[in-house]
Design a protein around this nucleic acid. Structure first.
Lengths: 213, 213
DNA sequence: CATGGTGGCTAGTGATCGTTAGCCTTTGAC
DNA sequence: GTCAAAGGCTAACGATCACTAGCCACCATG
């Protein structure tokens, strides 16, 4: 039950690895992926270092040769996740000039991320409270940045007279939340493909903002 | 920071109290409310019985005079929550004949619940994994029932030619998820009141299903 | 063949926590 | 006034965990 990060990734993660770069990066990645899966399945507090170790054929204490602490695992997973969406968002918006198309692309990217990176998305929304305060504030700021970027698109459409929106704030929340929800119910072996869902949600977004007359 | 269950409550909860009915119901309620708040704040695994006790001026072990286990607290909170939404949903739908209005009322009730019972909603989506298997399946079934009830409204509107919907399934998910999201960002002291938000989301729902031409 | 670093292991430490045992005080019924 | 139940407490048990200490095997480099 491996993870696939097939979506566009940011050029580089900003969190410095605890171990000198170039030294067993593959092992570290495998640990991160295993931790993600277990954190989602059993929760952060409900997952032991031994669990994570077992998932990569190690004993718990051996993990400390690759990772500074359990907390570091959580922090890195969460920041990696948000930076990924945000990068995908920026890339998607940049592919269009028209504000209507920009919002559509943004929603598609949002949905695609939440379908393809279900676990990351899920963790991000659920384990914020288990993040040490020093990490938490940074993560929250990144999330707010992302939301603001969405909000700007809605505002721009309204300003240009292309969207008919009663409350830009509530509408933006609705747009974001309906896409976020995909992470909860999406299944790889479900009826609808990621692309179909993304396209459909793009349509729904257009309806929400009253685009195209 | 108490909870208000101002919505219609189901006739009776299916989880039998550990203590004979009628004996110190008030104390037990206070424990449940404290547990809810703490579970949301620190997570189920991150909350100790001593924490809960302290919140109601008791020592941890004293809780066992009122409650069978920590697990029971979680299970009761979750089932109480779902039964509450579902009851509110049924009551809301019953106030209208027209399918369009029924869906609008259902969305309003959904949003109202998620704004007023933020903590319950949050817990319900986050701590499913910490529920003992025997409780979990029942809770999941109740949640599915609730979703199905929404889905039926969408289908009915489509069948009556009142809604223009490409995928009833995806549209229903979008409707539910945007409302569920309210629980995450709503604040009692925020700009918008519960009623304003509920009304607005009713409008958004009508747009999503393409109601009213 | 030395050697030193990398990465694995076992054993253990100290802390935390759910839960139980057992005791004591209050209170209300008779 | 007696007595039992209800409900509070402290103490302690047994588990579980994150993390550390310290050891050893492998292996590349000279």
């Amino acid at each position: 039950m491996g993870l696939e990060h097939t979506g566009a990734r940011p050029v580089d993660g900003p969190i410095a690895p605890a171990v000198p770069l170039g030294v067993t990066p593959s092992r570290r990645e495998r640990i991160l992926d295993a931790a993600l899966e277990l954190f989602v399945e059993r929760g952060y507090a409900g997952t032991t270092m031994d669990d994570i170790g077992a998932a990569v054929d190690l004993k718990g204490p051996s993990l400390y040769k690759h990772v500074r602490s359990k907390q570091e695992l959580l922090a890195e997973l969460m920041s990696r996740s948000i930076l990924t969406v945000h990068a995908a968002h920026d890339a998607a918006v940049a592919t269009a000039e028209d504000i209507e198309l920009q919002l559509r692309r943004a929603v598609e990217a949002h949905v695609r991320f939440h379908a393809r990176n279900r676990l990351d998305a899920f963790l991000g929304s659920r384990e914020l409270g288990n993040l040490a305060p020093e990490h938490r504030s940074g993560i929250i700021r990144l999330r707010k940045d992302y939301e603001r970027s969405f909000r700007r698109l809605v505002d721009a459409g309204v300003a240009a007279g292309r969207f008919a929106v009663r409350s830009p704030k509530l509408t933006t929340f609705a747009l974001l939340d309906m896409g976020t929800g995909v992470a909860v119910w999406f299944r790889d072996d479900g009826e609808a493909s990621v692309d179909e869902i993304a396209y459909h949600y793009g349509d729904l977004a257009m309806r929400l903002v009253g685009a195209g007359r």
